[in-house]
Design a protein around this nucleic acid. Structure first.
Lengths: 334, 334
DNA sequence: CCCTCCCGTGTAATCGATTACATGAGGGTA
DNA sequence: TACCCTCATGTAATCGATTACACGGGAGGG
């Protein structure tokens, strides 16, 4: 593959001049610039980003570590991050942690070895020594979606509290009183927040708050189904099941269908986390939608701020309720 | 950030020795090796992959260019590629071409600049000069999913012909006679293949083949909905609509529901391309499932073969029919 | 006419690793 | 004791770019 030196020889100039042309340095005469361009095309020259990065100590690359690319939430997040980064001239390397601290660490290590300019992490529950050290070293880190307590790292996340309050109000207005939540592990900031917000909202609306209506699983389909079964087997089952993420909602849906129950007549269903196919279900599923694209875009902006020495603070975005038909008469927004 | 030289000084050895330790070269005494390891941890040394790559001319990185990460098909593909590559010690950089030749070229260029060891591409319709040149230069390329005619590049793809034949048989057995297809653009190898296979199978089964039952759109939801509307408005509408990908099927579903028609009683529905939530629909959607994970894994293996000088041929994998309930009595597989 | 300054370009050091080759110590053998 | 070999380690060139600094020539001012 042609090197800068080959281009220089071909154009009859020095490597410095070729480099200046590459970097659009204005102090090259137009005539020389054209000769260099000609030489480049003749040789099919493609600059070597590896060599450039070694010298400039910058890779124009960001690392993104997510929980699971198969989850539409993360897919959308990845896409937004990629789009925003690309517009700023950065490439994104995605690492799939598969919700395992060990895999997460693998990518933290690999991406730091590759000298990415910044690292966006959806952290697993644990604070691993590696992440702690990266933060301490001052590597440019940003947490997305989830937050780890007690770490001095800027974060960009969604606050669903208000939307959950709205949802509970929506349910009350539709006549529901016995409402249940199946959510994720309390050790994740997201699982904890959703549970707390729900409990609080139910209390504030003066609705029944039975401990057995608050179930905690692992954000996976199977646990959503199992917990729904438990709820529906109760002597007095809830009138509404609220899934803590799209997969738990899907599990609930399976269990409800398997029992031949109708939605929303026999039991209503709502989801935290909207996915593109919820509107196409029968009936369309009422969901709390997170501003995922915004989440990704803001995270990129925070890290770029940091890279350019601008002050970079944390960001909290609101989720919004999208009422559809799965809880009864939809469309009548608060 | 600590460099190899710092480690060398700290351990009282030369940089060569440190490098040997890094590369697990056996000709280093155990005692020295331990001293070096100690120095590394004391300094929080992280090797610089950029410098290593410059010297070794290998990045242990693969590029993957896909159509759209939001499409579950590509998400699963990306995940499989990443998994397989990671097990072989490679990192994957994903580029989202957004089905645009221009974006595709952007990533081809960027990834070649970054000197990825190999490039996996789901090509857009066009053969761009850049891709052509990359192929001619002998850059390690592999096409996934789609194929560009007349290029000497190994490909890994799915052949749905047999499964489509099976589906048509399945439909016939269930008593359907008037079957329609809404598929993608004929300029894509996938759109063309699915249409050809369907037409051929319908003919072979001696079922009605009306030209107006074969519609071609753009693999997007809106076009699926519009084409379905056109079909259902026909004086004699089809008994079955077969969507050419998951999005067109979803569009068809919307149109069918909007008209208050029942599936499968009023009109049956099937999809090429299975997605995780089809089994959870009401009724569960009969689909042709592509071995996506296998597709990704094989593509990685093909490119690694090529990188290691082993012969690398093209691969064709069969799709399989997954009968569910959306065409009538499910479960009775051929 | 000479001095300065600027413009366009070139020379060479540098980034952090890998690795061919050199070196020196120690052991075994004749 | 002399020789050779092996083993552990060191020296220095190298990968392909960027960039500080140097330099020569021409323009402009006094």
């Amino acid at each position: 593959m042609a090197r800068i030196k080959d281009v220089a020889v071909r154009a009859g100039v020095s490597v410095a001049t070729v480099s200046r042309v590459l970097n659009a340095n204005p102090s090259v005469s137009e005539e020389t610039r054209n000769r260099v361009y000609a030489a480049m095309t003749e040789l099919n020259y493609v600059p070597n980003a590896v060599a450039r990065s070694l010298r400039t100590e910058a890779t124009r690359t960001l690392g993104l570590i997510i929980g699971d690319i198969l989850n539409p939430f993360f897919a959308e997040l990845a896409r937004a991050v990629e789009d925003t980064a690309r517009k700023a001239g950065y490439t994104v390397v995605i690492g799939n942690a598969d919700e395992r601290a060990e895999e997460q660490d693998h990518y933290v290590r690999t991406l730091i070895e590759q000298r990415v300019d910044g690292l966006l992490i959806c952290p697993t529950a644990e604070v691993t020594p590696l992440v702690e050290q990266a933060a301490a070293t001052g590597d440019p880190l940003v947490f997305i979606d989830r937050v780890l307590p007690g770490m001095d790292v800027p974060s960009v996340r969604v606050d669903g509290t208000a939307a959950i309050g709205e949802l509970v109000g929506h349910l009350k207005r539709l006549g529901h009183r016995r409402v249940a939540l199946i959510s994720g592990p309390l050790r994740l900031s997201t699982g904890r927040e959703r549970t707390d917000a729900f409990v609080k909202a139910v209390a504030e609306h003066g609705m029944e708050l039975r401990p057995e209506y608050i179930q905690s699983g692992d954000f996976q389909l199977a646990s959503g189904r199992a917990l729904s079964a438990r709820l529906l087997d109760l002597p007095e089952p809830p009138e509404v099941i609220f899934g803590g993420d799209n997969l738990m909602t899907l599990g609930a849906l399976d269990e409800i269908r398997a029992r031949g129950l109708r939605i929303p007549e026999d039991v209503a269903l709502a989801s935290f986390d909207d996915v593109p196919w919820f509107p196409h279900m029968n009936p369309p599923i009422t969901a709390i939608s997170q501003p995922v694209a915004e989440l990704g875009a803001r995270a990129v902006r925070v890290i770029l701020d940091r890279l350019h020495g601008r002050p970079a603070g944390s960001v909290v975005l609101p989720a919004v309720l999208v009422p559809r038909q799965s809880c009864g008469e939809g469309r009548n927004v608060s």
